[in-house]
């Protein structure tokens, strides 16, 4: 049985401007120990997916569908049950580590509290375990850090502490929402290396939400490309990067300048802007920005399997030709 089974997850928000359709019928499975990357641009619904799974949606948000974790339905759980699962079985780390930590509590207090609360440990053993965890995430001089407060530490350090906190109870699932976006390049790579090591060593499954395709390439087993709250393409990481089947995945891959390729002088931008989530277009949501759109795209395409365990939401029979090579010729 899959660790996490998400079926037809839909998230909407009531706002003064109308109903925002953040996530529209999302389905995927996650196996134990697997790392799933959710890629998409802002407004693609990737963060709301995570928050809905954690039961942390904003007040005006509503989630429907089903999120089963080890067979247990997470949507519609009471607050106390949610709290029990959060932190012990599933934990989450956020984009902005400094504000995710409580500024009025020392690092040590915050780590110890997690263990005394979720694991019923006494303070002594909890402290020892917390220090050991800080060592694992490569924090130097953990005893001293335990006494410090979040504002005394750098962003990178705070993110390590968030990761340590997330892993304290040995959760089965760690959801990381843009964990390195707010950090500098060199610190980013430290954290990514750390995440890679941890996912190899432990059996924790990771859902990694990011817009950085490089990070996905380095860390994930499986990738889910989201656009306008829907999955556009889902596949193992290697085939997806080598041979993207959906025009949007292809566009994403080609729009980033790369250090490992010859520079062709011009980037292949995806024209236009993401759709308005209040009034989504009929048919394929990517249609207006797609180079390959044709008559059929006014219908809404289904997410359909092809090849070996790959899925795409597109009417195109053949793969879109990579544009960059055409232009170079």
């Amino acid at each position: 049985m899959a660790l996490l089974e998400v079926r037809d997850l839909t998230v909407t928000f009531d706002t003064p401007d109308g109903v925002v359709h953040a996530v529209n019928g999302l389905s995927f499975d996650l196996e134990p120990g697997q790392t799933l990357g959710i890629v998409g641009e802002s407004g693609s619904g990737k963060t709301q997916t995570a928050l809905a799974m954690m039961g942390l949606l904003a007040e005006n948000g509503r989630a429907s569908g089903s999120v089963r974790f080890r067979g247990q339905e997470l949507l519609g759980l009471s607050t106390s049950e949610q709290t029990r699962i959060r932190g012990s079985k599933i934990s989450m780390i956020f984009q902005d580590p400094v504000s995710a930590l409580n500024p009025y509590m020392s690092i040590g207090e915050q780590l110890i509290e997690v263990l005394t609360h979720h694991r019923n440990l006494k303070r002594g053993p909890a402290r020892a375990r917390a220090i050991e965890m800080l060592r694992q995430v490569r924090i130097s001089d953990p005893e001293r850090r335990m006494r410090q407060y979040p504002h005394q530490l750098s962003g990178g350090m705070c993110q390590r502490i968030m990761i340590a906190m997330g892993l304290l109870c040995q959760p089965d699932l760690l959801i990381a929402d843009e964990p390195t976006t707010a950090l500098d390049v060199t610190v980013q790579s430290q954290i990514n290396l750390l995440m890679g090591e941890l996912s190899e060593k432990s059996s924790t499954a990771i859902v990694l939400i990011t817009h950085d395709l490089g990070v996905v390439a380095g860390l994930c087993d499986k990738v889910l490309v989201m656009y306008a709250g829907e999955v556009m393409e889902m596949a193992d990481v290697e085939p997806l990067f080598a041979d993207p089947a959906h025009p949007y995945s292809q566009g994403l891959l080609e729009s980033v300048p790369r250090l490992d390729r010859e520079d062709s002088g011009i980037l292949r931008a995806i024209p236009g802007n993401p759709p308005d989530l209040v009034s989504l277009p009929t048919g394929c949501p990517f249609r207006a920005r797609c180079d390959y759109a044709f008559d059929a795209c006014t219908e809404h395409p289904k997410l359909e399997p092809f090849d070996d365990d790959r899925w795409k939401r597109c009417f195109l029979e053949s793969r879109p030709m990579p544009k960059s090579s055409e232009e170079n010729a």
Binding site: V185, T186, S189, D212, G214, A217, V256, L259
Partner: peptide, 13 residues
Amino acid sequence: LIEAVPIPDPVAE
């Protein structure tokens, strides 16, 4: 700095 940049190619990365 250059070493820290992740490249979007799973095999090479």
